[in-house]
Design a protein around this nucleic acid. Structure first.
Length: 463
DNA sequence: ACTCTGTCTCAAGACGCG
DNA sequence: TTGAGACAGAGT
DNA sequence: CGCGTCC
């Protein structure tokens, strides 16, 4: 695991292997068919030469063991008893939902079985391993074990408890991760400031976003993560109301800011300055330039970056979405990685959320999940007062969709908003405007060091 | 007594030095 | 903006 | 670790 001395010497090979693994990841059926073929070859060989039963037995036990891990939700000891005060589940779309992660993800399960089949097959060519045993004994042994072990996971699965996968950066070695660029830039602009102002170069251009983007990307690449940045496009129509509100608030904050500046109130100034932050075209262009120089690909989303990120996951082009925003799950991204960036600096573990496992845990399907998220409140429309996490989930479980809920609900108690646009919102989640798979070409190349230096140092005044 | 919701507040990035 | 945590108030 | 600095 963490024997870093060895790691470096294997890095090359790792990268190579990971490269092929990545390419193979989307082809689930083909992968398993390959395994099936291997298994058949193995079985045929065992039967035809009447030997090596011990290897078959070991293989069987191993497969059984892995299969159990595959069925079992990941249950971290530290999360074992957080039933009431689920400490860090976000409020928005998944306070009550216990994201549900297999202890052994599908891909890893496949990979490990693949290796197991291959190794077993090879072992059958080593005569010394042909240890004579009574094969019926082994079969009985195996059946007993099988029956015994198959009982447990049912118990665990029935409880379907919290299952967030936690891990280190290193676990994502070689993985491709889609990241909402605008969101990151926004965060950099907000967080990276000194005396209430962003960092700037001599000519007064803001450089906070470049700083953050630069270091963060470096960090990820160092860890073998291949990031793809996704830039926001035009916001959808439905969001305009929300955006109006934001603009209003920003203008308000602007006024407060000026007031604070006049009064010489540094703290207040800082506070309001953060609220006036907006990601501009220039910021985006700067970052795109930087990314190009660093050899990191980016994608221009037609509308929402989160939606495009999710699409990249669905298309199998990246492993997951790296974000703090739970909306990515609503857009159908199966894998969501949180705290991806600061796990190294701070002691925050990386958390991986899986949509499929979460749905499993909640006992609902994706349409119902979408409705659930709308009920809980999204950017696109209002939500019903008095319905929060628990009630929303209960209602969804009972009625399965918003229409039925509306029919059955006591409208006096829970005021449904006028002209509630939940249907359009649902459409946006279901069929978001995204680029088709062949429109995005993700290539990671060597950084252009000279270009980087000249851009950062000469143009932006870095040292 | 308990559960659930809504509201408030706060912080926000990454580095390295001591 | 976002999430997280703490808390108060309404509902059961 | 906490805190000052990055530009």
């Amino acid at each position: 695991m963490d024997q870093d001395k060895n790691v470096s010497s294997f890095t090359r090979l790792d990268i190579l292997i990971q490269y092929y693994l990545d390419r193979v990841t989307p082809y689930v059926v083909a992968r398993w068919l390959t395994n099936l073929c291997l298994l058949i070859v193995f079985v045929v060989r065992i039967i035809s030469i009447h030997g090596f039963y011990i290897i078959a037995y070991c293989l069987g036990i191993f497969l059984l063991n892995q299969f159990l891990l595959f069925l079992t939700p990941k249950q971290d000891p530290s999360f074992a008893d957080d039933d009431d005060h689920a400490p860090s589940l976000p409020t928005r779309s998944n306070e009550e939902f216990r994201p549900f992660m297999r202890r052994l993800p599908e891909f890893k399960f496949w990979y490990i079985t693949f290796k197991a089949f291959a190794i077993s097959l090879i072992l059958t060519f080593i005569p010394i391993l042909n240890i004579p045993v009574m094969w019926p004994v082994l079969v009985i042994y195996f059946i007993v074990l099988f029956v015994l072990t198959m009982r447990q996971p049912k118990l665990i699965a029935d409880q379907a408890p919290a299952a967030i996968k936690e891990g280190e950066m290193a676990n994502y070695f070689g993985r491709k991760i889609a990241i909402d660029a605008s969101m990151s830039i926004y965060q950099f602009l907000i967080a990276v400031r000194q005396n209430g102002e962003n960092l700037t170069n001599d000519s007064g251009e803001t450089t906070s976003h470049l700083m953050g983007m630069f270091y963060r990307t470096i960090r990820m690449i160092e860890n073998g993560i291949k990031p793809v940045y996704v830039f926001d496009g035009k916001p959808p129509q439905l969001k305009s109301k929300e955006l109006e509100k934001r603009l209003e608030r920003r203008t308000e904050a602007e006024a407060e800011k000026t007031k604070a500046a006049d009064a010489g109130d540094g703290e207040a100034f800082d506070k309001f300055a953060r609220r006036t932050v907006k990601v501009t075209r220039e910021h985006n262009d700067d970052c795109k330039r930087l990314l190009t120089l660093m050899g990191v690909p980016y994608v221009d989303a037609p509308t929402e970056a989160e939606a495009q990120c999710a699409a990249l996951v669905k298309q199998g082009k990246v492993y997951g979405v790296g974000t703090e925003d739970m909306d990515a799950l609503t857009f159908g991204a199966d894998v969501l990685v949180r705290h991806l960036t600061f796990s190294e600096t701070r002691k925050m573990p990386i958390r991986e959320y899986s949509l499929t496992k979460a749905l499993q845990g909640l006992g609902i399907n994706f349409e119902e999940f979408t409705d659930l998220c709308i009920l809980l409140g999204c950017d696109y429309c209002d939500s019903i007062k008095g319905i929060g996490q628990k009630r929303a989930l209960d209602l969804i479980k009972q009625h399965r969709n918003i229409e039925t809920i509306l029919k059955n609900i006591d409208k006096k108690k829970y005021a449904v908003p006028d002209d509630w646009a939940y249907e359009q919102a649902r459409q946006l989640f279901k069929v978001p405007e995204i680029l088709p798979a062949d429109a995005t070409d993700l290539k990671w190349t060597e950084p252009d060091e000279d270009g980087l230096v000249s851009y950062m140092v000469k143009e932006k005044g870095f040292s």
